[in-house]
Design a protein around this nucleic acid. Structure first.
Lengths: 207, 207
DNA sequence: ACCTGAACACCGTTCAAGT
DNA sequence: ACCTGAACACCGTTCAAGT
């Protein structure tokens, strides 16, 4: 509640406020329970106002998902930078980070990967963000191949195998398929490390 | 359109018809586009009638998801039976079957794992069906351990690693994250085989 | 026992109109 | 330029009433 402008039609950044409110409501009520009207209500604006800033509800959700992919990419790059010359550790760190990020934002993860956003609702920006995240992972695999830690050949395939393993665990945990692990971050970390290590073994040299 | 009963308040099996209609609409319009009112409309019954057979919309969806888990379990058992004394082949077959089943029913897979069903909406029957599917996979891993193909120790952990890999690929494909592979079943089969083999290597003996 | 029809409180989206 | 308020066509769910 800024004292300066009192009520100058929401001091400029309605778009940003809607985004923040949407992220919060998503976390609280889940993707099914989030309504555009409530986002507007909570932001203190009429239910038609969001349409000045987003084409429709899906566009708002796409923007939230985009931020999620950006965090995934950043985590991957951090893991790479923190373990130069240790490709296997790069991959394990990135994998653990991926799963932890998912478990800390289960509803957003469902939004990103669960099909709440129909293919037609994927904005070009969202596509870019998702592609970037995969590229960051692929880069880590490439490092490992160059160092002779992983077998040669199709980098894309090895990256897909590693991604699948980590992504699968993340989805199983966020869906609650493995029991209620949401609180027990240490256990999640352990499972993520185990699964990622199996992937490292699986794509490793020697055969 | 049976000629016998003409219109005797829908010849007995409204529950079954609703289930069938729901499965069809789910496939056609996705989990977000499916409404209980349309299920009723398509079945030729008033929009309040389904409530005689299902507590609410979530209960109907849960029943559809349940059937999906049952198919998963059946596929696993088929893969096991078809490859007795070849544990690695059991796992690869089961994995490929898992991914193919998902890609053939993308919307149902999103329903089963995508979080459209809130935790509170998981019926006991649905929980049972999901647990059974994991148990069927675990059994295949156990075979491999007994045969000395996989390393000893926690069967649950090895099974989780394998499940994560296969599940991750299935979710990435059905979410369209890997491009539009829905049509190209041969390519999906190839990717599934590759990912499952990496998992077999990863949990294999020798280190 | 099983289904209907009206009713209620919500949605997403559009559009004229206000400042 | 940016927002409002009424309107429209939908929802899920409930409940008295019909057969």
């Amino acid at each position: 509640m800024p004292e300066s402008s009192e009520k100058t039609y929401h001091h400029g950044d309605l778009r940003g406020e809607l985004l923040k409110a949407a992220a919060r409501l998503l976390r609280e009520k889940g993707v099914g329970g989030l309504s555009l009207r409530e986002v507007a209500r909570v932001t203190g604006v009429s239910h038609a106002a969001p349409y000045r800033h987003f084409k429709d509800k899906a566009a708002l959700l796409a923007a939230v998902a985009e931020a999620g992919f950006a965090e995934l990419t950043a985590g991957c790059r951090r893991a790479e930078a923190a373990n130069s010359d240790a490709p296997a550790r790069q991959l394990v760190d990135a994998g653990v980070g991926y799963v932890l990020l998912a478990v800390r934002n289960p509803e957003r993860t469902q939004l990103m990967f669960g099909g709440a956003l129909a293919p037609a609702d994927w904005t070009p920006e969202l596509h870019r963000a998702a592609t970037d995240a995969f590229a960051a992972l692929e880069h880590i695999i490439e490092n490992g191949q160059r160092a002779g830690a992983y077998r040669g050949g199709e980098t894309r395939e090895l990256a897909l195998a590693a991604w699948s393993a980590v992504h699968g665990l993340a989805m199983l945990v966020t869906a609650g398929q493995l029991g209620d692990l949401a609180g027990d971050e240490e256990q999640v970390r352990g499972l993520a490390r185990m699964v990622t290590k199996v992937a490292v073994e699986g794509i490793g040299t020697r055969d």
